[in-house]
Amino acid sequence: MKVFEEYTAGIDNPDHRSKAEDVYAWIENRFPSLEQQMKWNTPMFTDHGTFIIGIDKAKHHLSFAPEEAAMKHFAEAIEEADYSATKGLFRIKWNQPVDYDLLEKIIQFNIQEKSDCTTFWRK
């Protein structure tokens, strides 16, 4: 998680910092083949040069951006988890639990759906 150390060090609230670090570490441990990158000041995980998910801090939440295709596919599950969402991301408030089962499904979906993708973003 060295790629994200400077980023997480900038999270002032220690509870928020810990939660973000836990999420990044969980992804790193569960999906060791994913590459960690900082792009546009956002921690991202990529696979063979293609975007899988970005997770960014905000004042009241963590934003999870898996691209619109994954958002559409998991819209009902995201709503059931009580996370607010837009067409491109969902938000987990700092005081909400992370649904790691859902996060795992979203990441697996993107890895599988983009296995032959040769661009960073879906076209």
Rank of each mutant, 00 (worst) to 15 (best):
W121S: 04
K87N: 11
P66M: 00
R122D: 10
N13G: 08
C117Q: 00
Y24G: 07
E104S: 11
K57R: 14
K72L: 15
V23M: 09
K123F: 02
N95K: 13
K123S: 10
V3K: 07
L62Y: 07
E68Y: 08
D22Y: 08
S33F: 12
N13H: 11
N110V: 10
H73G: 03
I92G: 03
A77P: 00
Q112E: 15
D12K: 15
L34D: 07
V23T: 09
F109M: 10
N95T: 10
I53K: 00
H73D: 03
Y83G: 09
I111K: 08
Y100M: 08
E6G: 09
T119E: 03
K39W: 02
T50A: 05
S63K: 09
N110T: 12
A69H: 07
H48P: 05
F74N: 00
F45V: 02
T42I: 15
Y24E: 06
S115Q: 14
H73E: 14
P14Y: 05
S115G: 04
M44T: 13
I111G: 01
D101N: 09
A85E: 01
I53F: 02
P66D: 02
I53Q: 02
M71L: 13
I111T: 06
A75D: 15
D12F: 09
F90H: 07
I78K: 01
Y100N: 07
E113N: 11
A25P: 00
E113H: 10
